[in-house]
């Protein structure tokens, strides 16, 4: 059962919550308790905020061989997205053709099913990106 493990991060997965260091301004995603640059100086100064959800494709691939959980979706596009706030994340691209995807392509976040624990298990929702 991974219910609680997923639930714990739902706010981040649904709404792209990130942290900004109150000391140096660096943005981190997922949220962190300590800024990787300022270390102890950032303690208690990490502010949570919602990313705009917009960014561009940094790199991408089409996945043909995947774990069982993704069987129904394959082949699917996985990309690294550089968000406008500077932070990068890994997610699937949806609602577009693989041939259209280019490095630098503008995309925006949306909420989709990202997995489920079998037919009787909990369904996991989270961000995917679609062309802007």
């Amino acid at each position: 059962m991974t219910t609680a493990r997923f639930w714990r991060d739902n706010a981040t997965r649904y709404n792209l919550m990130a942290t900004r260091c109150g000391s140096c301004g660096k943005v981190t995603f997922p949220p962190r308790h300590v800024c990787p640059i300022c270390h102890r100086r950032s303690m208690g100064k990490m502010e949570k905020f919602r990313l705009s959800g917009k960014g561009e494709v940094y790199s991408f691939t089409l996945v043909h061989e995947a774990p069982a959980a993704f069987e129904l979706q394959k082949p699917y596009i996985v990309a690294m997205i550089k968000m406008d706030e500077g932070v990068m994340m890994t997610a699937q691209l949806s609602d577009c053709e693989y041939a259209e995807v280019k490095i630098g392509m503008r995309v925006k976040a949306t909420l989709r099913k990202i997995g489920e624990e079998g037919a009787g298990g909990v369904i996991h929702y989270g961000y995917k990106f679609v062309p802007e």
Binding site: L72, S94, L111, R112, K113, I114
Partner: peptide, 9 residues
Amino acid sequence: PGPDEDVIT
């Protein structure tokens, strides 16, 4: 609906 879409999405 796509395979990643349902009533919730």
